[in-house]
């Protein structure tokens, strides 16, 4: 198993923390992981991205230049990174915020209205976990249980009441891609 996942979007969307959560979950499952952020002169509202590698064997390079999976949370990220995904790879697009389609024909593309689904759950801030749930359903990079366990370990106790909502967000994303007709597989 080798997954090099690039997560990209606006600063403030939780792109970096979603990546950290994924890496943490991989570590809890005993896999080799690395997390690497873009760290330019970035700010809220600017672009941000991070690369997460999860592998059964030691990770030679932590730098994700040719992702096996790409999560795009905004339009500039799709335009910038679509071309980098390996052939046969996966692109997950937050269709709540991205109003264009992917042009690649040699990768699997899923459109996920992550913000709308998160709002239906009652909190727009779990959009990242909706799309993460979809990624995990499609790649099996780590289990949803490991993500939930990671939340329990990284969140301070007074935030633990948010864990069920996050779990629900992950499951909503996973369920969506289990029924590809509704996720507009491309």
């Amino acid at each position: 198993m080798y997954e090099a996942i690039l997560i990209a979007g606006f600063g403030g969307q939780g792109v970096l923390s979603t990546g950290q959560l994924l890496a943490y979950a991989g570590m809890l499952e005993g896999k080799h992981v690395s997390w690497i952020p873009s760290y330019g002169p970035e700010m809220r509202g600017g672009t941000a991205n991070c690369g997460v590698t999860i592998s059964d064997s030691p990770i030679s390079s932590p730098v994700v230049t040719e992702p096996t999976s790409l999560i795009v949370m905004n339009r500039p990220s799709l335009e910038k990174f679509e071309g980098n995904v390996v052939p046969g790879g996966l692109i997950l697009i937050n269709s709540s915020l991205v109003d264009i389609k992917a042009t690649r024909k040699d990768v699997r593309v899923y459109y996920i209205p992550a913000n709308e689904l998160a709002e239906e759950l009652g909190n727009a801030r779990v959009a990242g976990n909706v799309i993460l749930g979809a990624l995990l359903e499609l790649t099996r990079a780590v289990s949803l249980d490991a993500v939930e366990k990671s939340l329990r370990e990284v969140l301070p106790a007074h935030r633990h009441k948010l864990i069920p909502l996050n779990r629900q967000a992950l499951e909503t994303g996973a369920a969506l891609v289990r029924r590809p007709a509704t996720a507009q597989a491309g």
């Binding site: 570590m27 760290y39 990770i59 932590p62 730098v63």
Partner: peptide, 10 residues
Amino acid sequence: DGILGQMMEP
């Protein structure tokens, strides 16, 4: 270098 400083690993 900046990468080594910013990256996270177990």
